[in-house]
Write a protein that binds this DNA or RNA. Structure first.
Lengths: 120, 120
DNA sequence: CGGGATCCAACATGATACTG
DNA sequence: CAGTATCATGTTGGATCCCG
């Protein structure tokens, strides 16, 4: 089974690569977990505050990526001042459990290790 | 629940962050999947050839990271010419199913749309 | 308020050459 | 064979200013 291929000839469209890319995207995970935790839509600034150390540029870019991937949705209210909020799509919600599984795995398996002098 | 925190004050040691970091590491995933597919230990060059488009520098760095995380193990044979092979540790093997789950999720949910490389 | 655009520093990564 | 060291370059992310 070729699950993650990448050859000069067969750069076959690989959604798996995309997902791992997105999951590897620290900010994307943060945004999704944050949205998942609150359960309700969050506004731009609420996300920024909840995450804490994300820059405006990164938040904007991350939201854009997640939108393009169909993992979150954006709702805009034509008010003054403008209001926008983001929420997980069905697809986004279905990914969430996997993130939690990984988190749980991490807590179970990565605790004891990390000792060979390299604890940053 | 704080699952992925990062504050100036509470940079609490977070294994979750490590795992997502490693999973986001394209090369690390490649190495683990490759080792998982063959099932038996692989030598340095075998890995390089199996993956195909990984540079020597990246392979070395990736292997080092995976070793530090305790996800793979390294066996060295004091022969001439030298021989070294790598295999998944128990921890590494236990992570593999999660990777496959994600891959499967990706194939199920990321099919429609999505054409531009997004992450750039 | 919710971004877009720009500049720049830091880092990741590839290519190449060399070593035990 | 299995790496290490060095250089060159592309990419990432933060800071800043601006606009509708």
């Amino acid at each position: 089974m070729r699950i993650f291929s990448k050859n000069a000839e067969s750069v076959d469209f690989c959604p798996v690569r995309d997902v791992f890319g997105r999951i590897g995207d620290k900010w994307a995970v943060l945004v999704m977990l944050t949205l998942g935790q609150t359960g309700s839509p969050l506004r731009y600034h609420q996300l920024q505050e909840a995450i804490g150390d994300i820059s405006q540029k990164m938040l904007t870019a991350t939201l854009k990526n997640l939108l393009e991937d169909g993992l979150i949705s954006r709702q805009m209210y034509p008010e003054v001042p403008p209001r926008v909020d983001y929420s997980l799509t069905t697809a986004g919600q279905s990914l969430l459990p996997h993130l939690y599984n990984l988190a749980q795995w991490a807590n179970e398996h990565m605790r004891p290790a990390k000792q060979n002098g390299a604890i940053k």
